[in-house]
Design a protein around this nucleic acid. Structure first.
Lengths: 179, 179
DNA sequence: CTCATTTCTTTACAATTGTTATCGTTCAAT
DNA sequence: ATTGAACGATAACAATTGTAAAGAAATGAG
């Protein structure tokens, strides 16, 4: 896929420091409450971030080939991560340690700008997602997901998607069969 | 109030460029769809940001004395603002133009860092708010608001708060009287 | 292939929320 | 003082969602 190649080119700077990590499905690569010291680049497979809510897992995001994943807030501020990162499929990940990452960033104003642009983009996305909750009901959020992120629906089990939409699996099943 | 004074000290750098703006309640100082060229600092009064959703106004945030308000995304990227900014009370605002603001920022690495920290903080807040929608039902979000932002409840009309919580004014009234 | 796990659907019922409308109060402007 | 707009509470009804449980279908490991 083109998209993947374009994204992967952005990693080239880090490649000399990469260490490959192969994990089976349902493996937690960063646990909620721990401080993030690693950043992951997805070569193959997909992962999710999730938070624990009174024993119930709530999925907050999905990641696929070409994406980079980390608790960037924990990574930067040295605070415990508010969420876990877990593989949903068998994955091939490229990992880089915080120190190496920060050295590279510090020595390249170009990469520094890219990182800032990335953070800005995440702020924007997070805001858009929040607006979607304010504007739309679950039905409409599901319709929006179909249009904007069809690959998620094709690849991710529905009960993860349900919590991502802020509803129960039962309710999502009903929405789907309401055609 | 101490909080206000601390926040206002952060404006000192910009003061020579400030132009005062006094507006009555319910005045739109930035319209959705327009490109933001001004940043506002609140000396007195409060404002809200809101988006139009099929004719219905949805409030996305509230701002008070000491806060700075702008469509920062529009301000930085020159894209049309996704939301309007409107006064809820008569306000005394200090305004600064984009060019002046950016000149000051460019010439001070200290302020640049502060701006980055500010953006990072906004990302974090936006994420936390999103998590609140994923974790909690309207009742719980209201309880959370009582604890975290009691000043909002004391000062803002309830129908604005309702849309901020993602519910109707009727539903908020019911929640409140469920004690 | 078989068994166990995971995933999804369905049902019945309770609880919550949305919608529409009415009514009383407060507040600001004239 | 009077009027009109804004605001909040309430009622009645429809629609949606949550909860708990049961069962079918798909998936994966041995």
């Amino acid at each position: 896929m083109k998209q993947v190649n374009i994204k992967q080119k952005n990693w080239d700077f880090f490649r000399p420091y990469f260490k490959q990590l192969v994990v089976p499905a349902k493996t937690i690569v960063l646990q909620e409450g721990k401080i993030s010291r690693t950043m992951f680049f997805i070569e193959k497979g997909c992962l999710r971030t999730w938070v624990n809510n009174d024993g119930k897992e709530i999925t907050t995001q999905f990641f696929f080939e070409g994406d980079s994943v980390s608790s960037i807030e924990s990574f930067i501020t040295n605070q415990p991560s508010l969420y876990s990162i877990e593989s949903l499929e068998p994955c091939i990940l490229q990992t880089i340690l915080k120190n190496d990452f920060q050295n590279i960033i510090e020595n390249s104003s170009e990469l520094k700008k890219k990182l800032e642009a990335h953070l800005f983009k995440r702020l924007f996305q997070s805001q858009q997602l929040l607006y979607s909750f304010l504007r739309n009901n679950p039905q409409q959020r599901y319709d929006e997901l179909i249009v904007k992120h069809p690959h998620i629906l094709q690849r991710i089990p529905q009960h993860y998607i349900a919590s991502y939409l802020g509803i129960t699996p039962v309710s999502l099943s009903r929405i789907r069969n309401r055609h």
